[in-house]
Amino acid sequence: MSKSVRFLIPLIIFGALVILLVIGLGKDPSKVPSPLIGKSVPAFSLPELTNPGRSVGDEDLKGQISLVNVWASWCVSCRQEHQALMALSKETDFQIVGLNWKDDAQDALAVLRMSGNPYAMNGYDPDNKVGLHWGVYGAPETFVVDQHGVIRYKHIGPIDRKIWEETLQPLVAQLKAEGA
């Protein structure tokens, strides 16, 4: 190594550091990817929110595509995405399954009464029993589960038009094509 090249090393290291930081600036460090992607949904059984006699379980997530939406009445941004979910509930390619997380049944039902119910069914999980197995760490989160009950994607944060059109809709279409 020639002598003058040696003195370039600090600059080169710094350059690499800058590239790393530029990449870092574009990422959100508070988002944690789920290790459950590509795995079957964890076995569970929960009482249905609106109809406590019934239960919701992993079997209900097989046979068709599901969006499993983690929500709670105390969660501000869940209310933000509620309208988007209402719109999506009219589509027939998939069902929306709610996971009512760390919530109070009365409060949750009040929200559904006031703003409408986009969910085909709703697991009631006040103590984070099932949420823990799904690796839920906040609300809202949305899992995309395919026809075989395998988790294919996890979205953290509220669903809006952009997220739906750019990420979720193409994924649902792809899953549908796989299934057909």
Partner: peptide, 18 residues
């Protein structure tokens, strides 16, 4: 700012230090 200050001084270093 970092690029200018640190990059600039390290470039100066690479140029002058030899």
């Amino acid at each position: 700012f970092l690029c200018i200050v640190i990059g600039g001084s390290l470039a100066l270093y690479a140029w002058r230090a030899p």
